[in-house]
Design a binder for these strands. Structure first.
Length: 593
RNA sequence: GGCUCCGUAGUUCAAUGGAUAGAAUAGAAGUUUCCUAAACUUUAGAUGCAGGUUCGAUUCCUGCCGGAGCUACCA
């Protein structure tokens, strides 16, 4: 909350006290932005208070408005439309508020410590567009939390074991002829993914054959020799069979090289990796402790359960009757392990698709019941699928948009567009290719981050991602435009003195001041909601407002030196706010484009 | 069947219970002797259906219709 807004609210409280002899709690009073069609910037809605005022909406609003103009320094005039009291503030208020930029720091998560998990790839297939949404979201939330004063550990959990891994291993053993990334020229993850698909092809053939021989589909799926062999391979892996283990390590190594290349190209990294092969046995000890505490109970067959029916959920299996772990056991164990690795954390953020909403609801409930102090701080950053016009993306059916493909496609398009617009004059070759990367990735990241994370979103591969309108490049372009202004201002050597408050401010300038000074609030909001789209919307508003300002008013052609100075300073602040916001989204901004 | 989420312009997305439901894109019409036209201006176009709560509902509640997900001793 800005200082002057706090003042206005205080004045509103005393207005009710003086005019209507009513005590209103300060916290209950809110101001909202005034609609563009009306004069003013802040609006107080009187409808909810009519019972107190015992007057018509218009009369009530007018009385309060008169009181504010008389008693509150920042309010200079008002107008009333029905029950809406629109306030206009003094230039001085705006100038002061402008000077306080940067002094207010976001602090929603001050002093807290989080672990953010934002990738959980399987090592049997390459990353696709859905993974990118996951990674960009988590990476951005990590930065937002940091900006809001928190310390963050970035992590991923690698699903490097299980039947699906054995499938690609088996297919490689059978059909691979010792093929490797060097000999094939394929990126490691792509190579392994190829064999995962190949497994499925042969699996389907065998099923078809068995059905011909008279088995039902159900039976055929279970009895296919290739599947049985894969299961055998999993058993061998679990018993640490040397040959199997070596192959597993070799193929996983290829995949990690592939993933690392992709991570590097999109500019994300991790402080700590967790591997399921290390963690899948964790959690059993905690089950024992939970049994003692009475959080869990044992059935006659030896399986362990938790009863969550009183919370409106189901009974949930924690440990199989043969004593082996399930997904939930593992997640409890991993969470505990992370706490041991990073003592003092206040919570963990899991960036995982919304098909697992129920799982995490249960997981967090269990953590709380087990009495972990950090259970309350856990949050499932749930996001919706990225859909194609043809439906859902499915790796096995090959209906995915590959991550590396879409990245290079975006960079290529950026190059084409930039050349078309003739914007590479005076750029070195490295400068140009770095610019294409910045723009292409900016477009992709912004496209995925501007949408509310919780919602399912649509990606149409035929209509490539836009570079115009509400897009990353539009915001980057605005930044580059301002940079040009600042370069020119530097040459002019405007002496650095403060701006007096007898300027007359234009609406577009007030819009900008008010947006720039909202930075901290918006970051805090985003941190509390774990939402990057709040930042994306904010930075778009900012860029849009700046472009309007830029078109409407001439900066260097202003009436007097003081106005020029003010507009340059305003531009500088907007540039800073854009740069910081884009940083929070993991997007770079260019000085020229 | 049970539980959860989602239905907003042709399309892709917005909207702490507030004013005439915002943007972008596609459509129509404009703006470059002057700070970067990846920009700006104008125009047309939408809340699945039926009730309820109230000063006021895209938002909250109920029912229906449509879509998705979860509902494994898989991960």
């Amino acid at each position: 909350m800005k200082n002057f807004e706090d003042q206005i609210i205080n004045s509103l409280v005393s207005a009710f006290k003086t005019l209507f002899e009513a005590d209103i709690e300060k916290e209950k009073i809110t101001l909202q932005p005034t609609n563009k069609e009306f004069k003013g910037t802040h609006t107080f809605v009187v409808f909810p208070y009519l019972k107190i005022t015992r007057k018509t909406p218009e009369e009530s609003a007018k009385a309060i408005g008169v009181f504010l103009v008389e008693n509150c320094d920042s309010v200079t005039s008002f107008n009333v439309v029905k029950g809406f009291l629109n306030l206009e503030l003094s230039t001085e208020t705006w100038i002061n508020s402008f000077h306080k930029l940067g002094e207010l720091k976001p602090s929603a998560k001050k002093g807290s410590k989080y672990i953010v998990e934002y990738a959980s790839p399987n090592t049997n297939k390459p990353l696709h567009l859905g993974h990118l949404r996951n990674i960009f979201l988590g990476f951005s939330v990590n930065r937002i939390l940091q900006e809001a004063g928190s310390e963050v550990v970035k992590t991923q959990i690698v699903n490097d074991r299980g039947i699906h891994i054995c499938k690609s291993m088996l297919a490689w053993k059978r059909y691979g002829n010792e093929e490797n990334p060097e000999s094939s020229g394929l990126k490691g993850d792509k190579l392994v993914g190829k064999y995962y698909v190949l497994f499925d092809v042969h699996y389907k053939e065998e099923i078809a054959q068995l059905i011909k021989e008279g088995l039902s589909e159900e039976e055929a799926k279970k009895e296919a020799p290739i599947l049985k062999e894969a299961q055998e391979l999993l058993r061998k892996w679990e018993s640490k069979d040397a040959e199997t283990y070596t192959l597993w390590e070799k193929m996983n190594g290829w995949v990690y090289d592939g993933f690392d290349a992709t991570y590097e190209s999109i500019g994300v990294d991790f402080d700590k990796n967790y591997y399921e092969s290390d963690t899948y046995l964790l959690g059993k000890g905690i089950v024992d402790a939970g049994l003692e505490k009475g959080v869990f109970y044992k059935k006659d067959d030896g399986s362990v359960w938790i009863d969550l029916t009183s919370e409106g959920l189901d009974e949930k299996l924690i440990l199989r009757s043969d004593g082996t772990a399930v997904y939930m056991t593992q997640d409890i164990g991993t969470a505990n392990q992370r706490y041991l690795d990073f003592p003092g954390i206040d919570g963990m953020i899991y960036t995982v698709g919304n098909e697992q909403d129920y799982h995490f609801k249960v997981l967090f409930l269990i953590l709380k019941k087990l009495g972990y102090s950090w259970g309350d701080g856990c949050h499932h950053l749930s996001y919706g699928m990225v859909d194609l016009p043809t439906g859902k993306m499915k790796s096995r059916e090959g209906t995915v948009v590959d991550a590396d493909d879409i990245i290079s496609e975006m960079i290529n398009t950026a190059e084409e567009r930039t050349k078309e617009l003739g914007k590479i004059e005076g750029l070195s070759e490295e400068g140009a290719s770095s610019l294409y990367r910045i723009i292409g990735l900016g477009a992709l990241k912004y496209f995925l981050l501007k949408v509310d994370p919780k919602k399912r979103m649509m990606f149409n591969p035929k209509e490539s991602i836009d570079f115009q309108g509400n897009t990353g490049p539009f915001i980057q372009y605005t930044y580059a435009r301002i940079s040009a202004i600042l370069r020119r201002a530097k040459i002019l050597e405007l002496e650095d003195s403060s701006v007096s408050d007898n300027l007359s401010l234009h609406n577009s300038e007030i819009d900008l001041i008010s947006l720039v000074s909202a930075y901290s609030e918006r970051v805090d909001l985003a941190a509390n909601e774990y939402s990057s789209s709040i930042i994306a919307q904010y930075v778009y508003d900012l860029a849009k407002a700046y472009n309007r300002f830029y078109t409407e008013l001439s900066i260097f052609g202003a009436e007097n030196k003081e106005e020029i100075k003010f507009r340059v300073q305003l531009s500088e602040q907007v540039a800073k706010a854009i740069k910081k916001s884009m940083y929070l989204l993991g997007i770079e901004v260019p000085e020229r484009m």
